[in-house]
């Protein structure tokens, strides 16, 4: 029992950090720009496709990761400047449908460029070994690397948001965007930077999770819904809340799949979210709005 529990908790933690990488970008965009971007999952997909095209070509996982992050950040910046910027003054309804149209477009674009079959995504050679965590429990090192990398990025992001000037502007933007623009901060560039940063984190998540889940069309949609749940549980706009919620959702989902009967297991996180919202309608850590 204990080895399974440990193994699945670690798997849950790994899903949790993946969710955090996606959800942190999503929650900042929502909290600061008041923009619902359902196509955030498509950026995750594009990142993974770029990475696992570059990796076989160059043989380097790090290079692939770098290419994916840069390419997706550029795509994010372009989308923000030419599309999403026009939506800040519109309602959620219009934002939902524009991102729905964008998902349709990007999914089909990937199908045209890469074909309908899943892209093979191998675990990088240097991590193709396992660690014996407990007697009889071998755990793949790659998953531990994801957890470690996710934690490092999370800490860096937390530091960036809470201890730097850029982070201060971002937080100020989340509290009162008109005021910070009145203080002479170029809000337009700040928004583009936040969006591009969120896209880069999505690509990072897509690349790291690619070998574990599958690199295929529609991979973004399933995880997008989980990320949305994460930010709602955490409290929209709160990085700290998102971090807590990501771990809770990751572990609930993974343990649920192992220990709950099918049919109920996939529903566990939705039940969890409903309970949280009934108890605290603005999430675990409500951001000041």
């Amino acid at each position: 029992m204990l080895p399974i529990l440990l193994e699945q908790t670690l798997n849950g933690l790994q899903l949790g950090v993946t969710l955090f990488l996606l959800a942190s970008g999503l929650t900042l965009v929502l909290g600061i720009m008041r923009l619902v971007n359902l196509a955030h999952g498509s950026l995750y997909m594009v990142g993974a496709y770029v990475a696992f095209t570059v990796q076989p070509a160059t043989g380097s996982f790090l290079l692939a990761l770098f290419a994916a992050v840069i390419a997706t950040a550029i795509l994010g910046a372009v989308l923000e400047r030419f599309l999403f910027e026009k939506l800040y003054s519109r309602g959620y309804l219009e934002q939902v449908i524009v991102s729905f149209g964008l998902i349709m477009f990007l999914d089909e674009l990937v199908r045209v460029v890469w074909g309908p079959l899943p892209l093979p995504a191998a675990i990088p050679d240097m991590f193709e070994w396992s660690i014996e965590l407990l007697p009889g429990l071998l755990y793949p090192s790659y998953r531990l690397v994801i957890i470690a990398a996710g934690l490092v990025v999370s800490i860096l992001l937390y530091f960036l948001v809470t201890h730097t000037k850029l982070g201060m502007m971002v937080r100020a933007g989340a509290s009162d965007r008109r005021m910070i623009s009145a203080l002479g901060i170029n809000i337009r560039d700040l928004y583009t930077a936040v969006f591009a940063g969120g896209a880069a984190l999505a690509a990072l998540a897509g690349t790291m999770a690619g070998p574990i889940y599958s690199v295929q069309i529609g991979m973004g949609e399933a995880i997008l819904v989980q990320s949305l749940i994460t930010i709602v549980i955490g409290g929209i706009g709160s990085i700290r809340g998102t971090a807590i919620a990501a771990v809770l959702v990751g572990i609930t989902d993974t343990l649920g799949r192992v220990f709950l009967p099918p049919g109920i297991s996939q529903i566990a996180i939705y039940v969890f979210m409903t309970i949280v919202l009934v108890w605290r309608p603005r999430g675990l850590v409500p951001a000041h709005a």
């Binding site: 929209i236 099918p262 049919g263 529903i267 919202l277 309608p281």
Partner: peptide
């Protein structure tokens, strides 16, 4: 009854969550 306790963005998300529950329930049938 549950969703209307929230509003705005949270309402969008909670209605989505309930729909997903029913979706996965249908998948499990």
């Amino acid at each position: 009854a549950i969703s209307l306790r929230t509003s705005g963005l949270y309402f969008i998300m909670i209605t989505l969550a309930f729909a997903q529950m029913i979706y996965y329930y249908a998948v499990s049938l």
